[in-house]
């Protein structure tokens, strides 16, 4: 079976042209989407749903930087082991705690603007880690795995912040 990069005719590397990804995703969906098979046999409908589902999964994986890095490592046979390996360098853990504290303060003060700033900070940090992972993936895959785990941490905190904002705005 083709891997996700091959499916969208992209080079198998972290830095990709997202415009090409978008274009090729749309081209592919235009051919295989279930809407094209409404009058087809049950067998073709099923294959269409499977293929479109796979294309959606592949697209989301490559579009999202953390997922893309994780997938590249997986193709190289390296598990990022995010569920079990939660060991982090001390400085990263400190930054984590600061974010969580800032989040609690904002919750208490019902300050959405502060949460937006927090999101900006984390996005900034994530961008740096993404640049780092792009270099590490070929050179030092084991270190790349740690960077992916860090990115996953940031994604998780961002998710929680977004949820908190939704709660405060309700």
């Amino acid at each position: 079976m083709q891997n996700y990069f091959e499916l969208f005719q992209l080079p198998q590397q972290f830095t990709i042209d997202t415009a090409v990804l978008d274009t090729n995703y749309r081209k592919l969906l235009a051919e295989v989407h279930p809407d094209r098979f409404v009058n087809a046999s049950a067998a073709e409908k099923m294959h269409s749903m499977r293929t479109a589902t796979l294309a959606n999964e592949a697209y989301q994986t490559l579009k999202q930087p953390t997922a893309r890095a994780r997938y590249l490592l997986q193709l190289a046979g390296i598990a990022t082991d995010e569920e079990n390996n939660t060991a982090m360098p001390a400085d990263f853990l400190m930054a984590q705690m600061e974010w969580r504290e800032a989040m609690d303060d904002a919750r208490f003060a019902r300050n959405v603007a502060a949460l937006d700033n927090l999101l900006q900070d984390m996005r900034q940090q994530a961008r740096q880690l993404q640049q780092q992972v792009a270099a590490e993936i070929t050179r030092a895959p084991a270190e790349a795995a740690l960077t992916v785990r860090k990115l996953r941490f940031i994604d998780k905190v961002s998710e929680d912040v977004n949820q908190l904002i939704a709660q405060l705005e309700d």
Binding site: K27, E31, H47
Partner: peptide, 17 residues
């Protein structure tokens, strides 16, 4: 027509890109 359907879908994927 199962196998035929699968072949047609693979061909669609190729054609798309």
């Amino acid at each position: 027509t199962e196998a035929f359907a699968a072949k047609r879908m693979d061909a669609s994927v190729q054609k798309a890109l």
